[in-house]
Design a protein around this nucleic acid. Sequence first.
RNA 1: GGCCCGGUAGUUCAGCUGGAUAGAACGGUCGCCUCCUAAGCGACAGGUCGCAGGUUCGAAUCCUGCCCGGGUCACCA
Length: 578
Amino acid sequence: MKNILRERIDEALITLKEDKFLPQAVSANYQIDIPKSIAHGDYSSNVALLLAKPCSKSPRVIAETMRDILLKYETFEEVVVAGPGFLNFKISDRSLFTIIGEILELKNDFGCSTIGASKKVQIEFVSANPTGPLHVGHGRGAALGSALSSIYTACGFEVVKEYYVNDAGRQMDILAASVYLRMKEETGRESTYPSLCYQGDYVRRLAVDYLKSSTLNIRMEEFAFDEVELKGETDSDLDNLIGEIKAVLGLENFAQLKAYAASVITGSIREDLENFRVDFEEWYSEQKMHDFGLIDSVLSSLETKGHTYSRDKATWFRSAALGDEKDRVLIRENGAKTYFAADVAYHFEKFNKGFARLVNIWGADHHGYVARVRAALTALGCSEKRLEIILVQFASLIKNKEPVAMSTRSGEFVTLRELVEEVGVDAARFFYLMRRSDQHLEFDLDLAVSRSNENPVYYVQYAHARICSILESSEEYDPTVWQLEFGDVLSETSERKIAVLLARYPEVVISAMKTNEPHQITQYLREVAQEFHSYYNAHKILAEDTRLRNARLSLIYCIRQVLVNGLQLLDISAPRSM
RNA sequence: GGCCCGGUAGUUCAGCUGGAUAGAACGGUCGCCUCCUAAGCGACAGGUCGCAGGUUCGAAUCCUGCCCGGGUCACCA
């Protein structure tokens, strides 16, 4: 409908220019809005206000002249000049309710578009280190990424969801060492467990299972445990400890233990995500990049292009020259590659896969990372503008009005699994997607778990269930009975508002895609549900008059369709009864 | 100190490519089921849109400065 309005207004402007009322050269990036108050019409435009200055004419005079032209169209029942020079449009019934026919025809495709032109998009998200279970912070990224994927798909993109598995590096060594120390305890030996090791119960379970494992290669000989000793509680003490464990087990056994721990944890992460209705097409392993020499080849490519230098026995990347705050280390003094080096290679690989757009969803704590990754991509000759990085602010949990503390190392966190068990997938996803991602999220557990009117997810689902119930109790209803003439009987203000609201859905989807903001869908669905509940209470859907009844049934049928389509984008269920 | 995010009703937040009387939910008060699901609806109360300037027909929205809260600034990942 907005598009039609825009066409009409553009035509009117051309006419006015031909009549020399307006100068040829002027143009305006005017808006078409849905006014807050229906008293200002179904739609309004500020076009005359914007033209006033360049044309040196009063905005009201321009608006009045435009009104006279626009009134010729049957689309408009009324065109009113208001306030400083707004044009307010009341759409004729027939035009307004064409949206019903459109929704009935498109069904699940209503809201889909081809704006993406089948371009390939990769969305990388969650990508938590496989050192422990996912916690509620990861859940936010998971919900955001999967909703965005659906939104991009609806907009006609071809989407690949990817999880980058950081299964290499020091934190994995710490994990392996943690499991090792728990095994030591499990075999009845004395052991002090460092506070820097992973504290969660899952580490002990890994230890027990590994000891029981039939494929066990490590021979649990006395010396294999007893020669290892913890000296202190600092990072370097921990590194020494890891060194000792490696020496005692042998590198191969240590690597095997590490791989075991990584695969078990990755497996359970995968399970948690599946429970949360998130699936990835791709699980990309950092370790494999190391194994295949991809990192080395990217590093040498940087070197060839003159973007690296040596200092203090380390290899540095000249990122400061490319917009970063300072240069960054790629290879440490001790010869180990940094996480950043792996990340450069990872992003380079991504860019070589032919994606038109790459979306990274990162925790806000990574924001300092953005500049250096972009710098590296520029250095490698990639057009870094194809990369979009969404920084998600932290989610904090509130229980009994008190914040819940979270920390992975200490093991004091609420896992995503626990959250889902407590509040259910629908509520969890809905809550995560209610807020802008650059906004801190307060996740009120008590509210999410409540099965009452306090809980917004039920509000939307309830609207859907109510409509299902009405449609089922009206056996003779068939959506195909809808005729354009029915628009004449839908004369209530609320019915007009609903028609305008439903017509807005496709542009909400596109806007959510363009801004990477799924919460726009969530907000929109709450609005639709609200309009419906209000309408339902004020007017009887199953009216005596057949025409009116069928018209209203068609209208609520379309409301349901939009609710279903929107909830599907968020992967939240639409129950038929509640 | 540099950089990032935020400061809107008692609370949690929408609104931010400038637009008409700043919205919703929760919480509070008062109403609505002989009638399509009361997990619902209606009404009332509740606001110096952090502060101060600026830009203009018009600013919660844009610009500048300041104040407050959170995050982040490794040869950790």
